[in-house]
């Protein structure tokens, strides 16, 4: 699944919040490439800059200096509405707090990015249903998030992330609010999606979660301090521990 062009390419990326005395340097020069089909875990303690990195990777924020190419597109040059379109077409978000619309059903939530991509309503429904099927929730399409467990909500969020068939799935602490069973569940889905060839960048501070990725990148004080490959891009992702109980005891 490798191509010559990386999905993500960062050069000397920096990000500074505030100005003058109060300025905070969240990123101090990050250079990184992620190729198609890879499964990368970005690890770091809180305050390490990993959230800032995730915001920039997700086109929710723009770097102060350096360059960021997403699928070969320099996002720094884009207007706000063009960034919206990039997020819509290229990136599937999975958040720690799920970020589903509470008033809408699972199906409507999954349809949402397709709506903004101006997909016709019939096709939208078909694609949303198949995305729900991929996460094993097609039977609960008409349920609202309030009627679902945390794990199910996160699976709906994953379905929403893959509905538009993005180049990159960007997951920000996707298991942070889940118990060990649901964590294993969601990581299993990620592994399956990666096996199907999807590129995943997962941000976490938990070591055992990072062990499910093919490559672990460690961030500290706004810099990359470690880059470890656990499995080749072409092969399947590693499956450590397997059962949820093992994950829980390992913690």
């Amino acid at each position: 699944m490798t191509t010559d062009q990386p999905v993500i390419r960062l050069w000397e990326l920096t990000k500074t919040y505030g100005e003058g005395e109060a300025a905070v340097q969240a990123l101090r020069g990050v250079t990184l490439s992620v190729y198609s089909g890879d499964y990368v875990a970005i690890m770091g303690a809180s305050g390490s800059g990993k959230s800032t990195l995730m915001s920039i990777l997700g086109c929710l924020d723009v770097q102060t200096t350096g360059r960021y190419l997403l699928d070969g597109i320099d996002v720094e040059m884009l207007y706000e509405d063009e960034l919206s379109e990039i997020r819509n077409r290229k990136i599937g978000f999975v958040f720690q707090s799920f970020n589903l619309l509470p008033g809408s059903t699972a199906l409507q939530n999954v349809e949402l990015p397709l709506t903004y991509a101006k997909v016709r309503s019939h096709e939208r429904r078909t694609r949303a249903l198949s995305a729900l099927q991929a996460v094993g929730l097609d039977k609960r399409a008409s349920h609202r998030p309030a009627m679902m467990s945390g794990g199910e909500r996160q699976r709906v969020a994953v379905a929403r992330a893959i509905a538009v068939n993005p180049s990159l799935i960007l997951a920000d602490e996707p298991t942070g609010n889940l118990d060990s069973v649901a964590t294993a569940d969601v990581l299993g889905i990620f592994a399956e999606l990666n096996r199907q060839g999807r590129t995943i960048v997962l941000i976490t501070h938990e070591g055992d979660v990072a062990q499910h990725a093919k490559r672990v990148v460690r961030v500290r004080d706004g810099r990359l301090v470690e880059d470890t490959r656990l499995a080749p891009i072409d092969g399947p992702p590693p499956m450590p521990g397997l059962a949820g109980h093992d994950l829980a005891s390992a913690r």
Binding site: G58, L60, E80, D81, S84, E85, R87, N88, R89, F93, N99, L100, L101, L112, P113, Y116, A117, R160, V164
Partner: peptide, 16 residues
């Protein structure tokens, strides 16, 4: 506000 944030993250434009 949060709903607007979700919609925008997922691809809603200003006009939407």
């Amino acid at each position: 506000t949060r709903e607007i944030g979700i919609r925008k993250a997922i691809g809603a434009k200003r006009s939407d």
